[in-house]
Design a protein around this nucleic acid. Structure first.
Length: 225
DNA sequence: GAATCAATAT
DNA sequence: AATATTGATT
């Protein structure tokens, strides 16, 4: 229960806990400086804010219950906390940094004390990348939240987190497909010209990775260079 | 009861 | 817009 934000086992560096609470604007620099970059993360685009997911906690017990083990799993186990990306420029003040609004007043456990607020999940490109790989790996049928969470194997990631993201992701896929990638579906095109070419989405069958291999990054904004 | 999905709320 | 929460369904 204790151990607010960072409980990561034994990172190679000690990316430190980047004071997700009190540190307001220098946390970016700190994290950036450390550069604790997981292998599968190298070569990421230079966009996105560095906003580690500061989930209150997901006890190892729970994780274990879910089967989060060394058994299967993607690359290295990940701590969502520092799934950062390159700060586009400099601090962009994430959210959980300070005077957000704290109206509790009693149930506050250690998290609050340390500054652990409700912390919304932030799908950094890295995380999203993992997500996509998991989804593609599982296939259209198997890509359900529970399985995805399992495969992704990131520390504080919950099934709900994934479910929500997955919903969005599916909408995106559908929309992309509807725009002329589907091949045989140019029928139901209402009015309107569909100029916004969808950023190209790999369908559930894994596309031949091109050079830089950048499946894509975010729904609308971020993208790889 | 748990998990998924769609709808809805923040 | 992005993520969370809820509700109906399986």
């Amino acid at each position: 229960m204790l151990s607010p934000r960072i409980i990561r086992p034994q990172p190679r560096h000690g990316t430190a806990s980047a004071g997700s609470s009190s540190s307001r604007r220098h946390m970016v620099d700190a994290a950036s400086a450390r550069g604790g970059v997981p292998e599968w993360e190298v070569g990421l685009p230079s966009a996105a804010e560095l906003t580690p997911v500061s989930q209150p906690l997901i006890p190892p017990a729970l994780a274990a219950a879910f089967g989060l083990g060394p058994a299967d799993a993607f690359p290295p186990p990940v701590d969502a906390r520092f799934l950062h990306d390159s700060p586009t420029s400099h601090l962009s003040s994430s959210r959980f940094d300070d005077d957000d609004d704290d109206e509790e007043g009693e149930g506050e456990t250690e998290d609050a004390a340390t500054g652990g607020k409700k912390a919304r999940m932030v799908w950094t490109p890295s995380l999203h990348h993992r997500f996509v790989e998991a989804v593609e790996r599982l296939g259209e049928k198997g890509a359900v939240p529970k399985a995805i969470v399992r495969l992704m194997n990131v520390d504080g990631l919950t099934r709900e987190n994934v479910a929500s993201h997955l919903q969005k992701y599916r909408l995106y896929l559908k929309r992309s497909r509807a725009h002329g990638a589907g091949a045989t579906a140019t029928a139901t095109q209402p009015p309107q010209m569909p100029p916004p070419s969808p950023p190209y989405f790999p369908r559930f069958a894994a596309q031949p990775p091109r050079d830089g291999y950048c499946p894509f990054v975010s729904y609308e904004k971020l993208r790889c260079d």
